[in-house]
């Protein structure tokens, strides 16, 4: 291929990319640069803003609430990730073969993913309600509890119960990613393992999961980034309580930027959060073996 042909081919590719690039610039890069600019400003809605240097960053990093919110988000991510991944992988293994029955099961498991977090949060708030919720009713009917449990009343219990709701809602998506990964594994490898006398557990841990590693890490990147951005479920089900112990970092950004009108500090926290998310995602991609590709 001559240099001219290569340049022509690249121009062609660039033209095809233009629509998505335009959207990326308008809806991501432009707002991102604005947020970056605002993070160094005492930003006023009306009138001129003043240059603050790194004061907003110092303010953000010096706030105990910033670190508490970050910690809450981290804990939630640690709880919710295995709650999504373990059942998702198991279900994917069980449902990887395409038959009428497995297709129905896949649809049933995927349905919660199609509803919004807002709706799911309200539905599960009602399920968890200790006075008229169905969970306490069922548990008391089978004598598992003697008095109604306030599921969202204590910090740790609330974190776990919200994570269960999130797992119910999102594991269908992770399951589908794993099924597509599993279906791309050659059947010959399994046949060879079978001839060698490998058990099903050995096959799962020594063949399926290692081959599935890039898929697992891809799903992990999506899931962990999503968990770090958690907002709706906590906003609706606990509103950050009791005493801010379930307040996530995005709730904190929302509070200081849009409730306290401190857009400068809100932007600074957003930039810090973006750096953190990028670092985590980069590490995950490296661990998943994507960087060389």
């Amino acid at each position: 291929m001559t240099l001219g042909q290569l340049a022509s081919k690249n121009r062609m590719g660039l033209l095809f990319m233009l629509p998505s690039l335009s959207l990326l610039v308008v809806f991501f890069l432009f707002p991102l640069t604005q947020v970056l600019y605002m993070s160094f400003q005492d930003w006023n809605v009306m009138g001129s803003s003043t240059w603050e240097g790194i004061n907003n960053y110092i303010k953000a990093l010096g706030s105990g609430e910033f670190w508490l919110s970050l910690w809450n988000t981290f804990i939630y991510t640690v709880i919710v990730t295995p709650l999504i991944f373990v059942p998702a992988i198991l279900l994917a293994v069980m449902l990887k073969k395409t038959t009428f029955r497995t297709e129905v099961m896949r649809v049933v498991i995927f349905i919660p993913f199609t509803i919004s977090f807002v709706s799911a949060s309200y539905i599960w708030s009602w399920i968890y309600n200790d006075t008229y919720g169905i969970l306490n009713f069922l548990l008391s009917k089978i004598d598992l509890i003697s008095r109604p449990v306030n599921w969202l009343g204590e910090t740790w219990r609330a974190r776990v119960m919200i994570s269960i709701m999130v797992a119910w809602k999102t594991l269908g998506f992770s399951m589908l990613i794993f099924i597509s990964g599993l279906q791309s594994i050659s059947q010959e490898i399994y046949e060879a393992a079978d001839i060698d006398g490998a058990s099903r557990i050995q096959t799962l841990f020594l063949i399926t999961i290692p081959i599935l590693r890039p898929t697992i890490f891809l799903a992990l990147v999506i899931s962990i980034a999503g968990s770090f951005k958690a907002f709706d479920q906590f906003f609706i089900m606990t509103n950050g309580g009791p005493m801010r112990t379930t307040q996530t970092i995005v709730m904190y950004i929302n509070k200081i930027a849009f409730e306290n009108y401190d857009m400068g500090t809100g932007s600074a926290v957003s930039v810090l959060f973006l750096i953190l998310l990028l670092s985590i995602s980069y590490q995950q991609i490296r661990m998943g073996g994507y960087t060389g590709e």
């Binding site: 309200y122 708030s125 009602w126 309600n129 200790d130 006075t131 109604p148 306030n150 969202l152 009343g153 609706i236 606990t238 309580g241 009791p242």
Partner: peptide, 11 residues
Amino acid sequence: PVSSAQWSSGD
């Protein structure tokens, strides 16, 4: 109920 300290208006 003590839990009403965490209820939403909808509850």
